[in-house]
Amino acid sequence: MKKHSLLKKAEPYVWLLPSMLLMAVMILVPIVTVFQLSMSQITRAGVIKGYNDFENFKAVFRSPTFWHTLKNTLVWTVTVVGFSTLIGFVIAMVLNQEFVGRKIVRAIVVFPWATSLIIQSVIWKYSINADYGSLNVILQKLGVIEKYINWTPTAQAHFAWECWIGIFVTVPFVTFCVLSGLQSIDTAYYEAADIDGASFWQKLGRITLPLLKPSLTVSTVLNIIYVFNSFPIIWTMTKGDPADRTHTLATYLYKLSFYNGKSGQAAAVSVIGFVILCICSSIYMILSLRAEKEEQ
């Protein structure tokens, strides 16, 4: 009898074991390895020559490109997460209304999300190309422009386009997170508010936003992590060029490692990114959880 209960106690762990092992192998081991690599001297051919006294970190901090990249990463994350949350929220509010063709509109909103990021970026890259891009052709045919316009004359212009594409592909995710939150709100609250004569803004501020907080928290934290680490858009569009002015940390470390042959420094950048991300997500989670508790 006792044996049986022991088995019963162990059972959940046995079931969990495969995924725990998988997580350990696929997540923990690489993290530890990257930390090790970041403190090692690695030759261009990939041979690891042992610890080198934080030389990789020192070299990274000395490089002006790193600081510029860090600034870019901040701008990229804040812009993309901020605007996509704002736009996604508005779209979700609209989609939550009853109107004809709502299902079709919902399907259309998912499209950018359902397409691979690389394909999206390639399509955008060719659309805005000044010499043969479809954007110029369409605008010219419509008579809006006379001559083809170079949409990406500077590094800043490149980066602005990349941010726009980032927002464009992230909006559906936010929309659906918010929409699911909206649908779980009991309509009785709104009916009660209507009876009390609450305005649209009052309902938004007093009912919708507080009740949406959990789904907004989840979508924002996940978004920060995704966007911060996002690689395909920038790599496909510019590879961080011109002159390394459009990198974020993810593309910068890839270029350091596989183009410049500096795997040690790339690992150091990776560790820096990991730490920043941990801090940001923790602060956000703690703040929002605390706020939730206070409300309760």
Partner: peptide, 8 residues
């Protein structure tokens, strides 16, 4: 030249 020699 083509408009974007930096990335093309």
């Amino acid at each position: 030249c083509t408009a974007d020699p930096y990335t093309e």
